[in-house]
Design a protein around this nucleic acid. Structure first.
Length: 894
RNA sequence: GCCGGGGUGGCGGAAUUGGUAGACGCAUUGGACUUAAAAUCCAAAGGGCAUCGCCCGUGAGGGUUCGAGUCCCUCCCCCGGCACCA
């Protein structure tokens, strides 16, 4: 009897014991050192990298794994394909979040980050991500930041690091720079009031020198379109002209314009309130008004100033300038919509052809002439600024020219008079890198009264971050490093006289601008990296990170890499050949029992702050509230809200956050389902860049799938009596085709990082097909063995533990994760028969299973033999036949 | 406002780039096994008419085509980024 036989088989082979199997293989891989990388291997190299994380105290959630798991799969896949793979991990340990966390907890950031990093390492290992931990780096360790400092000196030597006084938002309570996210009421992000702009000497990197290359070289790399665009916009190149206006007082005022063709329409000028000439230009009677405006402008953040929502304001300085093309006298105003940091901090205003100038002119009653004619224009006033193209009018000798021609001629004529020239401007600004903070890389500079700013000699690096008892920023001390007087007071490397160390530290972006190179030779001590090794590993083949936080990091690290290129240290122009982003994982949708959710007014606010809607008032006694997927859903499912006397709360997926208590950790999932299932589900649920809610039910599907494979391979599969199966000989050929197709599908999808379809159509679909025709006899045939062996190898990158156990149980030597990736025979992936779709006038009327190589004539004959096709053709004549070989036959009748 | 990406069943998502829409999975329903439950296995399933068939159906409307989720035009909505850059 079948039940008898299967009971026996059941007894002979054990069920898949996830925990035992996964623990066993983690230990064996560790012992065998399979994730270790040979720096100078002869094999082709593959460098895959995840943006190294800042280890936070809350540990990793399942959401964070959406970048680690796919990259781990790629590492394993490429290793099986015969590459020497570099797949490292490290910690972006310096920085504000670590410092803030340490302050909150009253501990030292060095201690907390090390603790948190250990937890990250444990979690990553738990989910089966294999890194070469001998290459682990930590940006806050002296062995690492020694070289960050070395790079600072390189930039300094090349004239790319400079100190300049700029007005920055300053908070006296923090004793530090305040972020740009300054609120309009003058409080900073921590609620401290009294934020103001203070001129400060700060370190900058001259990234603007590389503006064009940072845009243009994007042609050389494979980035997602949105990221490519974001980089280009950030650089913000625009072409136009510099034009010089003379003021009545004899000063020269240079402005940048993208529309020199509209110069005749420039009826006034506007300076930024901070413009150095403001003081000279204001007349005695305007002094009071101007100074008042400048004072007020200093209290408004740049974010607010650059908001298009804000109504424009300004004041007249009392002085006039002369328009160089028509000698007209035009007033000079100041207004905060003009930014000192862009162009020259002054503009010529052309209200007829610029929205902002139009609004401003309208408000202050300034003239709005038309100098580029809109289509069908006959001299009437404009309702709004005309931004389009057209012929120049009211433009003296240039009248009647097309605007492009006018552009060229006007600039050329100005140039002859020394009053203008073609120019390019960028919105990119130099990179402010100093921080008045403790937890960062010290800037290796000594300030000497006689020699000025002196670089610390290379052999004296690292300049160690001193131990201080209190690293909180404070107003009395300024930078916390000021308190380390023994450290601050040093001697000048040049003249030997007493001197003081720079007490600013480098912002975190500096540390992360070169870390990918350190991974190659992490212990090299004659330089940041060993050049020969970098040659074979760079550029990074695959770089993965979140889309949100990457604009600056990418720009900065690309900039550093280009500096290295110019220095001859590397031979590639770009550090990352291929960039991909992982999508966000939201909290699970659903309905939860109200009693499990206690909601206070405070909590309701936080739910709203997380972007979810709260559809009921929080009760006075703080018992519960409803936040539903949508108001409609809330209303259409009242029954769900009441069933069996319980009350339910609908929760819409939003970000996972600690405050909502909806974070799912890998630890709990691995505990319940195992690492392979977690990996499989993360890969299977959506394309890697998709944003979607977590859904624990999905894990069941993966779990069932892996159990079916287990049963198939170890022979636990119960074959149903009476089930229609093809004869053995036929089945042998069939399974062979199935597996060759699967290999092809998996290989192709992995190359494209399409993990979801790889699992669905490269693993699940073929396994389902195998299960339909499998039998114990088939398993004993050559084809049967080939199928299982290849299947296990296909499984190895995504479900390494399961694959390893099956590999061993089917009598193979050595770990499968280092076995070669299976190949396939193209001929075996082609079907002999196909389903030919038969259409009449474009509508499907039949499907015929035919020989794949069928010719049109034969197909047509077969189609016409189909009764249903006949019905639709009726007595009508066939006017046209469209035949797509192997796919479709369309009869056009009329 | 500008730039980029999207809108497909109850849900996550497939669709060889113009050729069977809904692969694969979840949830659901029915059946088998079981004392029972779980697990497992088998089967059904976009909507409608009514069942060997037909009609409708990929945000809305129009177009191109023998044929459109896919291409073109207009519009709506969602997500991400940048936002007075002269």
């Amino acid at each position: 009897m079948a039940t008898q036989a299967s009971a026996e088989r059941r007894a002979a082979t054990s069920r898949y014991d996830v925990r035992a199997v996964e623990a066993k293989w983690k230990e064996r891989w560790e012992k065998a050192g399979i994730h270790r990388t040979d720096t100078f291997s002869d094999k082709p190299t593959y460098y895959c990298l995840v943006m190294f994380p800042y280890p936070s105290g809350s540990g990793l959630s399942v959401g964070h794994l959406r970048n680690y798991i796919p990259v781990d799969v790629m590492a394993r896949f490429k290793r099986m394909q015969g590459h020497e793979v570099l797949h490292p991990m490290g910690w972006d340990a310096f920085g504000l979040p670590a410092e803030q966390d340490a302050i909150d907890k009253g501990r030292h950031p060095a201690e907390t980050t090390r603790e948190y990093a250990a937890n990250y390492r444990r979690q990553l290992t738990l989910v089966g991500c294999g890194y070469d931990w001998e290459r682990e780096i930590d940006s806050s360790m002296p062995e690492y930041y020694r070289w960050t400092q070395w790079f600072f000196l390189l930039l300094h030597r090349r004239g790319l690091a400079y100190r300049a006084e700029k007005r920055q938002w300053w908070c006296d309570v923090c004793g530090a720079l305040a972020d740009e996210e300054v609120l309009a009421d003058g409080t900073d992000w921590r609620g401290h009031s009294g934020i103001y702009k203070k001129p400060l000497k700060q370190w900058f990197f001259k990234i603007t020198d590389y503006a064009d290359r940072l845009s243009e070289d994007l042609e050389l790399v494979d980035y997602p379109e949105q990221t490519r665009r974001a980089q280009i916009n950030w650089v913000g190149r625009s072409e136009g002209a510099d034009v010089v206006f003379k003021t009545e007082r004899g000063d020269e005022l240079s402005v940048f314009t993208t529309r020199p063709d509209t110069l005749f329409g420039a009826t006034f000028m506007v300076l930024a309130p901070e413009h150095p000439l403001v003081e000279r230009l204001m007349t005695a009677e305007r002094k009071e008004a101007v100074e008042e405006y400048v004072r007020a402008a200093a209290l408004v953040s740049e974010i607010d100033r650059t908001s298009t929502e804000r109504e424009k304001t300004g004041v007249f300085t009392g002085t006039y300038a002369v328009n160089p093309v028509n000698e007209e006298r035009i007033p000079i105003w100041i207004a905060d919509y003009v930014l000192l940091s862009y162009g020259s901090g002054a503009i010529m205003a052309v209200p007829g052809h610029d929205d902002r100038d139009f609004e401003f002119a309208g408000k202050y009653g300034l003239p709005i002439p038309v100098v580029v004619a809109p289509p069908d224009w006959d001299g009437e006033d404009l309702e709004e600024a005309y931004l389009g193209s057209g012929k120049l009018v009211n433009s003296g000798e240039y009248g009647g020219l097309e605007w492009e021609e006018g552009f060229k001629r006007i600039v050329a004529d100005l140039e002859k008079r020394g009053l203008g020239k073609l120019a390019v401007n960028y919105r990119l600004r130099d990179w402010l890198i100093s921080r008045q903070r403790y937890w960062g890389c010290p800037i290796p500079i000594v300030h000497c009264e006689d020699c000025g700013e002196v670089a610390v000699p290379e052999e004296e690096l690292p300049v160690l971050l001193p131990e201080v008892t209190d690293f909180r920023p404070s107003p009395e001390r300024g930078s916390p490093l000021e308190a380390a007087t023994e450290w601050v007071n040093t001697t000048c490397p040049d003249c030997g006289k007493p001197a003081k160390r720079e007490t600013d530290t480098l912002g975190g972006f500096a540390c992360s601008s070169w870390y990918f190179l350190r991974f190659i030779t992490p212990n090299f001590d004659e330089g940041p990296f060993e050049r020969e090794a970098a040659e074979s590993w760079m550029p990074v083949d695959l770089y993965v990170g979140g889309a949100e936080h990457t604009v600056m990091h990418l720009l900065y690290s690309r900039f550093w890499y280009k500096v290295m290129y110019d220095e001859g240290m590397v031979s590639a122009k770009e550090p990352y050949a291929k960039l991909r982003h992982q999508g966000m994982l939201l909290a699970q949708d659903g309905w939860v029992e109200a009693s499990t959710v206690r909601v206070t007014q405070e909590r309701a606010s936080s739910i709203e702050a997380e972007g979810m809607d709260v559809y009921a008032e929080p009760t006075a006694d703080a018992r519960l509230l409803f936040h539903a997927p949508s108001k409609a859903e809330f209303e259409t499912r009242p029954e769900r809200m009441q069933g069996d006397g319980k009350e339910w709360v609908g929760v819409r997926s939003g970000k996972m956050s600690k405050s909502l208590g909806n974070v799912v950790t890998p630890d709990e999932i691995v505990d319940r389902y195992g690492a392979d299932c977690l990996r499989g589900y993360e890969l299977f649920m959506a394309p890697m860049d998709g944003t979607l809610p977590w859904n624990e039910n999905g894990l069941n599907g993966i779990s069932r799938f892996y159990n079916r494979i287990w049963d198939l391979v170890v022979g636990r599969r119960v074959v149903e009596e009476g089930r229609q199966r093809p004869p053995l000989e036929e089945a042998r050929a069939l399974v062979r085709k199935i597996i060759h197709k699967a290999v092809k599908k998996c290989t192709g999808d992995l190359e494209e990082l399409r993990f979801n379809t790889m699992i669905a159509n490269g693993l699940m679909e073929p396994v389902n097909a195998l299960l339909d025709i499998w039998s114990p006899e088939l398993a004993e045939t050559e084809e049967g063995r080939e199928v299982l062996e290849k299947l296990i190898r296909l499984l190895a990158p995504t479900a390494p533990h399961l694959a390893e156990e099956l590999w061993e149980r089917t009598g193979h030597e050595g770990p499968v994760v280092t076995a070669p990736w299976p190949g396939y025979d193209e001929a075996l992936t082609v079907d002999e028969t196909v389903t030919l779709v038969v259409q009449v006038n474009g509508k499907v009327r039949d499907r015929l299973v035919v020989d794949a190589g069928i010719e049109e004539e034969e197909a047509k004959a077969l189609a016409l033999a189909s009764p249903n096709v006949q019905t639709h053709v009726g007595g009508k004549t066939i006017q046209r036949v469209i035949f797509v070989p192997g796919r479709l036959l369309n009869l056009v009748v009329g």
